[in-house]
């Protein structure tokens, strides 16, 4: 609420100005809006359009979509894409299951721990991925020697299964924490969590019921934004996957780009559009449910 207060006098100023001045001001605002939009569009669209032209313009044959068609027949495309999507889904589920109950618990019963949780969840932002992956690979190497005699030996082997490297999910959960924390914190701040929980408890609801029927439905926007930030992160993460020796989609793109210049750019454009599409689906799903409820 506090930031709104100083905005009131500022908003009142144009209303108090004479009509002619207001009109001029409105036009200026419109013009500036257009300028900013055009500048931003130029910045984002120029590389995209030039890339696109590069992929469809063959110096010999003129316009061709061969580069795009090749993607789908290239070796490892489907496999790496499915792997990335699988990793993204698993990461989203795990990171939400970890953070949401923790954040609720802190909000409801230990508000003084909130800064601690916030710092912990923000830490991954300041750790460079290269340091992070160096740590992970050290642990993975060290693990088998020390855990050979324990049941954990099987676990440490299993998480490195190349078909579905769970170790990447663990790493991505850590990397996604800051974004998920921010999204959920904003979502929880928008509802009166304590009163809603107490009202539901008063109606006889058990804790799981409160979480599923009261918190989650009222937290859709926060959950949707947490999910698609995580999705975007997983679809674009290269360092950790590459250095641990797995081949999800981003690593595959880099691998394939060495052999065919036009195709590597085409793959980049394709992955960009694909990610956009997924985010669009996710965000519209979030808003549609919200307005439909």
């Amino acid at each position: 609420m506090a930031p709104l207060t100083p905005a009131v006098p500022a908003a009142a100023v144009p209303a108090a100005a004479p009509p002619a001045g207001r009109q001029g001001r409105a036009r200026r605002v419109r013009v500036w809006r257009g300028v900013v939009l055009a500048a931003a569009a130029l910045y984002f669209l120029t590389p995209l359009i030039t890339s696109f032209v590069f992929t469809v313009n063959d110096p010999v044959r003129g316009f061709t979509l061969d580069a795009y068609l090749e993607i789908f027949s290239a070796e490892g495309f489907v496999q790496s894409l499915l792997l990335s999507l699988g990793l993204a889904a698993a990461t989203i589920v795990v990171v939400l299951l970890l953070t949401l109950p923790a954040m609720l618990a802190v909000r409801l019963s230990a508000p003084r721990l909130r800064p601690v949780l916030e710092v912990i969840c923000t830490l991954p932002l300041v750790v460079p991925p290269i340091t992070f992956v160096a740590g992970i690979s050290t642990v993975l190497r060290w693990g088998p020697d020390h855990l050979a005699a324990t049941p954990f030996y099987q676990t440490i082997i299993a998480v490195q299964n190349p078909a579905f490297p769970a170790v990447l999910v663990i790493a991505y959960v850590v990397l996604a924490l800051p974004f998920v924390y921010r999204s959920l914190d904003a979502g929880l701040g928008a509802i009166d969590v304590r009163t809603l929980v107490e009202a539901a408890r008063n109606c006889g609801a058990s804790w799981p019921h409160v979480l599923l029927r009261v918190i989650i439905p009222n937290l859709r926007a926060g959950l949707a934004s947490a999910s698609f930030l995580t999705l975007a992160l997983v679809l674009g993460e290269y360092t950790v996957a590459r250095l641990l020796g797995y081949q999800p989609f981003p690593v595959w793109i880099v691998t394939i780009s060495g052999s065919n210049a036009a195709m590597s750019v085409a793959v980049s454009i394709f992955s960009l559009l694909f990610a956009w599409l997924l985010l669009l689906v996710l965000s519209t799903a979030g808003t549609r449910k919200r307005s439909g409820s």
């Binding site: 509802i191 009166d192 009163t195 809603l196 107490e198 009202a199 539901a200 408890r201 008063n202 109606c203 006889g204 609801a205 058990s206 009261v214 439905p217 009222n218 409820s293």
Partner: peptide, 21 residues
């Protein structure tokens, strides 16, 4: 006795209706 097993209905000071229902 936990809150959800008590025989008491409560009306809160702040608006407490579930916004999604």
């Amino acid at each position: 006795v936990p809150a959800n097993r008590r025989d008491a209905g409560m009306v809160f000071q702040s608006y407490s209706l579930f916004p999604n229902l």
